[in-house]
Structure formats: structure tokens, C-alpha cells
Write a protein that binds this DNA or RNA. Sequence first.
DNA 1: TTGTAGACTAGCGTCGACA
DNA 2: CTGTCGACGCTAGTCTACA
Lengths: 95, 95
Amino acid sequence: MSATESPSPSAHATASATAPGVARRLLALNLVRLRAQRGWSQEALAHESGLHRTFIAHVERQVRNASIDNVERLANALGVSVAVMFQPPPDPPAG
Amino acid sequence: MSATESPSPSAHATASATAPGVARRLLALNLVRLRAQRGWSQEALAHESGLHRTFIAHVERQVRNASIDNVERLANALGVSVAVMFQPPPDPPAG
DNA sequence: TTGTAGACTAGCGTCGACA
DNA sequence: CTGTCGACGCTAGTCTACA
């Protein structure tokens, strides 16, 4: 592991990188969207994911930063992959 | 919001769904892979992501369940999207 | 049905040190 | 350079209750 060959990797903040909070937003957006597609209520999703109702509400409002373990549980309840939870919206409303 | 139209959505545990812990594993796998591609050490990635060295080590060993905010920071440091962190491996060595 | 507040527990995430 | 233990602060996550 000769990482010493690695030159100075920038500083520690790549401006071109993703903006902070996008993950939380994407998660919330996809969460509401997917949940609406199932026609489930927050309570239903909470039951399916085995989490609490208040927690689901907070995640959708982006007032809470969920952990991987729970994000996976949410995706699992929605029948989707964990990766799609952070996927950008399918496409904007064209009409 | 007439979620009442939604009948019994299974029970609460879809066996066909993703197995528990895949997210943690995928994150660890991609983390090591991406980090190796950059030729960075755990310490370097820790510096880039603004996180602690011990935390990076734990995540790679799957002994820790990181939160979205930190996963995004990791992906950010690696210059990739948060979704790719949970993406399955490209493909195994065919040789 | 959903949002929010308050209190509580469990675990995340940091730091320092050693193998 | 990397893995791991001990201690500590902070907040994720739960539960109850009200608007």
C-alpha cells in the first residue's frame, strides 16, 4: 500500500463535487415519490419498513439524517434497490 | 390522501427483497475499490472526506453503519455520486 | 393522514494509543 | 499504512401526545 506515491489530492473540498445535502434531499424525494406510487401512508411505510411513523415523517421532511441500515430497510419496504433511493428523479413533468 | 384504498401490503417482510446488510457491504466494497483506484490511503480519504481515520477503517470493515450525510461525504471525496456507492460491483475477474 | 415537540435509549463518530 | 480497543459527546431512532 504505497499511498505515498499519491500526490496532494487537492485540499479537502472539491467544488466540482456534489453539493452537501443532496443525499438527504434525493432520499426524501424518492421516498415520497415511491410511497405515493404504492398509495401507502407514512404509517403503512413505517409498518413495512419496521420503523416508526415519526421517523418516516422526519426523513421525508429532511429534518433527519437516516443511517444506511435504515435507508436499506426503506428501499426494501418499497421493493427497490438502495441505489435508486439516491438516484436523480426519473424525469421532470413534461406536461 | 386515501391510503385506505391500499390493501394489505404483504405483511412486513418481503423475502424476495434485498438481503439485510447489502448496503453496508456494497458501501465497504465500493469504498475500498474506489479508494484503491485513487491510490489513496485510509488516512488520505479520511482527510479528503473530512472524517476520522478510524471511522473509515470501520466502514471498510463493515463494523460501522454510517449515516447518509457521511456516505455522501465519502462519495464526494471520491468524486463519485452517492448512488454509485451502493451500486453492485462492475464485474468479477474473468481471467 | 401528516407535522411537530419532548424525553429517553442506543449507537454513531471523534480522539488517542497500541500492535 | 491498517486494525482495534476505551472513553466520550452528539444525534439518530423510538414512543406518546397534540394540532
